[in-house]
Design a protein around this nucleic acid. Sequence first.
RNA 1: GGUUCCGUAGCUCAGCUGGAUAGAGCAACAGCCUUCUAAGCUGUAGGUCGAAGGUUCGAAUCCUUCCGGAAUCACCA
Length: 593
Amino acid sequence: MQRIEELLTSTIIRAAQELWQTELNESVIQIQKTRKEFNGDLTLVVFPLVRIAKKSPEETAAMLGKFLDENLEEISGFNVIKGFLNLTIAASYWLKQIGAIDEDDRYGLTTAGEDAPTVMVEYSSPNTNKPLHLGHVRNNLLGFSISKILEANGNKVIKVNLVNDRGIHICKSMIAWQLFGNGETPESSGKKGDQLVGEYYVKFDQEYKKQVAELIAEGKETKEAEAAAPIMAGAREMLLKWEADDPEVRKLWERMNGWVYDGFDKTYNRMGVSFDKIYYESETYKLGRQLVLKGVKKGFLEREADGSVWADLTDKKLDRKLLLRSDGTSVYMTQDVGTAHQRFSEYPIEQHIYVVGNEQNYHFQVLALVLEKLGFDWHDKLYHLSYGMVELPEGKMKSREGTVVDADELMDEMIATARQMSDELGKLGEYSEEEKQNIYRQIGLGALKYFILKVDPKKNMLFDPKESIDFNGNTGPFIQYTYARIRSVLRTAGEYDSGIPGVVLNDKEIDVIRLVHGFPAIVKEAAREHNPAVVANYMYDLAKEFNQFYHDHSILNADDANTRLFRIHLSAIVGRIIEKGMELLGIEVPERM
RNA sequence: GGUUCCGUAGCUCAGCUGGAUAGAGCAACAGCCUUCUAAGCUGUAGGUCGAAGGUUCGAAUCCUUCCGGAAUCACCA
């Protein structure tokens, strides 16, 4: 089925040939939705054509309107206001559209075939020294959703997680556990593994501060005291032992990381995100060094007298960037060069998306340039999906000041709020505790996910935990509610004939159909822009439009049998689009709520 | 100082590949449950789209400058 916009465009080009003997460039044809206050469905902006037609805007519009009306059965009428040609689309066209959508179980989306392009999406990428917090929540939701959206556009998506499991930070937790742990384990304490390890990370910091304060009291300078604190020295020693493959340290490291992974798995499961492959920095941190050395040999990079290696990016208006230390070891950038190279060798990657906070904008800018300097032709296939910070009313999250919002606690609170709201509204009285639990979970998480995903990723966003998250208005629960309502109608309707009868459509119905019709284009746009918020805000528009329709027109008690059938059918289709759209956001929809 | 991003209603956000009178939600006020779920619907009020120039028939949208805010610019990761 040809989309009406394409049909109009080709017909307008034909009209220009016949009326003005001109070959029109497609770019001058601007078709948009007609504004509410005017009659019509689609509007052609004729200003760009005025010069070609050599007529006034009104005359130009009238000529085109007449031509389209006569040549296209899909156009049932038109009117001209200034330079705007408002076209009314025939009901038969909308009915055909709705029929086509109904028959297509992919709703106009594509699925990945054998030769589909491969997209790798790296997201989450936590450190193993503390539990996931609000910032990770935004990261995980964005990464998962953009993966779904890319899949819906016919890409083969590989979701990967690069876990930062090595370095001084995990050694800090380890040494604190050795000193104060008394053998505590997740099993013995009943604590979640990541929470437990996180506690020792905090203990390290407290002890470290205490020792520094003591040393300063003894008369040492701040810097001197920081360097001399025994617990820090212990952590550094542990890191050296780790790098030297000391069996004791490695064993403890594996044990504590194992606890953390158990904890992370629980959180990921609950959040509903998943990965196809997990990379560990302990296995990849040496990558990249050889590539850099090769780059030096070829003269792409510079080696200083002390042995350190640098990339000179001053010609790109950036400064010089270190790639190898004077002792020959790698830095973060070097690892990223290495892991990217490894991944592009392993998979036929068309695009590699990194979901990473905007504090690393500079890093990814440099990464792409370094890869280009090293001569990799895939350097332009990296995309940094950069997202802004989640700010709290008090300002930024600071782990040291205890203002971090823990991901698990946040989900608990959201679900508890959903329960409270539900009870206040007197819903779900007759359901079993188990059913209720599941619905509260769906609503609570739906609220959280939607709240975060509806905001443009690149913007910083404000999150107020005290006021909790709204369950009214532009929210996940509102969309879920619309879905539950539709399901309820369908349950009441029972079996119905799924043919599309010929009916007279009212304005609201056309609005709903038009939105449904626009779904694939929205998903495509979301993929192009790497922005799930496009889908999220569309879902709200659709739900709102349907709610208005629901309020204004009876579905089951429609005036005649055909209208009733049609409305049931339309409701069912809206329900399926909501289901699909929310799936792209990683949000579940409840049958009732 | 360099680089990147943001600035739209009291608050949280849409709208940005230029189009008609800039939209939602929250908060405020006024209505609507004997009819398919009121987590809903309707209405009122609320705006110099940070500022000034420029391009254009037309600018919240594009360009320039400025103002305000954020991030980043380690032989850290």
